[in-house]
Amino acid sequence: MSSPPGEPRRIGYLYILPAFLVYGAFLLYPLIRAVHLSLFQWDGITLGKFVGLSNYLDVVRDAGLRAAFGHALVLIVFYSVLPVVIGLALATVLHRARVRGLGFFRTIVFLPQVVAMVVVAVAWRNIYSPDGPLNDVLGGSRGWLGDYTFALPAVGVIGTWIETGLVTVLLLAGMARIPSERYEAARLDGAGPVAEFFAVVLPAVRGEIAVAVTLTVIAALRTFDLVYVTTSGGPGTSTSVPSYEVYHRAFELGQVGSAAAVGVCLTALIFLITLGVNRIAERA
């Protein structure tokens, strides 16, 4: 690693100070406090009781929390696996074909990323409602978000809608960097489109796939706004997810310690996934 330019300068501390003060007070300190709070059983009002790691054991023991993390896994399929598969197919075809209007297409499919999640939730709640557009097409009158079987996949499809554009744009950018000689070499070897995909395209966009997986898995784990507005975790607890549990437990059930523990677990999970995916991508 090259060292940063410039002479040693003490003045550097002074330049960092304002950013560090806000960051330390409103991010680092709360993180430490979250770990601290997670060791207590506390209702937010009366005196807390020290319970050690029991809140963390509950993440495994408590059926409600286990279910929430299980729901997050289902959401990962919708937020991450489906967009990466669809995005790979879509980007490969569009890149090969050199179609016109790709710039405009990019603008459109990226749009779900910039619309406020609450707005997205309002739009999809209407689409899924008993007299909404989806039932108009299918000819039924099911309330998709109120259905024990369909509510979680219905939320998941919204995730697929949000993330597919991001993944496609990311992969298109990666494919644009593949030198054309590699395609020619593959074709001289007699490779068809499928063989070419596995021999040329897939290895070249490995890094982009790693980024796509990291971003979308984190998005899946952080599904709060969407669940809060569309289902509030229901019906029953069929769409409760860890980030919703943090809010629900801390501010509605008065289980502050448990909420903090779930928040800390979520953070640890996100760190591990980010590091793990990048490690795998580098090694492959």
Binding site: P30, A34, L37, G44
Partner: peptide, 20 residues
């Protein structure tokens, strides 16, 4: 230390922040 903040989900800090 600053990089930690990029990955950290709001869910982790919002609970202690509120009560403090």
């Amino acid at each position: 230390l600053f990089l930690i903040g990029i990955m950290m989900p709001t869910e982790a800090i919002v609970v202690p922040l509120y009560f403090d």
